[in-house]
């Protein structure tokens, strides 16, 4: 039932937002076409500015993943999983989540299909996927767009949020799906 409600809701958000903005513009007598083009002009320069930052980040993550270094890190973290009561199967997803959005979605989909969406692992994987954003990617493009190179402590707060969200996902899934 909730799914039936969510579907039209998510289909309506973008059109409704467009309509709201355009109507507000019309009421306030904004020259809508001219304003749109002026704003859109920035899209290209911002996207191009991101390239060096994205290359640096995605090359590092690519090497880290492809060579199996990431798998090695997982072996080190594995004993911690049992301590917080998480099944070992979700560990790759937990490590992948802050690094790569598409990679994490792939792993989550695989877990859901292998173990079933209504299994504990399936539910936990679903929850983990929705709780945080791809920290490394977000930092790279947000700071990259304005040319900030020193991220100071923001990487650590982001990763702290990832770890907390993961532990909280395990906790709430255990609580709500006994």
């Amino acid at each position: 039932m909730l799914a039936d409600l969510l579907d039209p809701l998510s289909r309506w958000t973008v059109p409704a937002l467009f309509a709201l903005i355009l109507l507000a513009g019309a009421v306030k007598r904004v020259k809508v076409y001219e304003a749109f083009v002026a704003g859109a002009e920035e899209g290209f320069s911002i996207a191009v500015k991101l390239i060096p930052y994205l290359v640096a980040m995605l090359v590092a993550i690519g090497i880290f993943r492809e060579t199996g270094a990431m798998a090695l890190v997982m072996q080190v973290v594995d004993p911690v999983m049992a301590m917080i009561g998480a099944p070992g199967e979700v560990l790759p997803l937990a490590v992948m989540r802050p690094l790569s959005g598409s990679g994490a979605l792939g792993l989550a989909t695989e877990l859901i299909q292998t173990h079933g969406p209504d299994s504990f692992i399936g539910r936990l994987a679903s929850t983990m996927q929705g709780t945080t954003d791809t920290t490394f990617f977000v930092l790279t493009i947000y700071f990259g767009s304005v040319g900030v190179r020193r991220y100071r402590y923001s990487l650590y707060t982001g990763l702290l949020a990832d770890v907390t969200s993961f532990v909280a996902s395990v906790y709430f899934c255990r609580l709500l799906f006994p």
Binding site: I21, A24, V30, F36, A38, G39, E42, G43, A47
Partner: peptide, 17 residues
């Protein structure tokens, strides 16, 4: 996508939203 939303955003901004 960026151009699309930045365009919309400019309208929203000029309309005071």
């Amino acid at each position: 996508v960026m151009a699309l939303w930045l365009g919309m955003m400019r309208i929203a901004q000029e309309a005071g939203l």
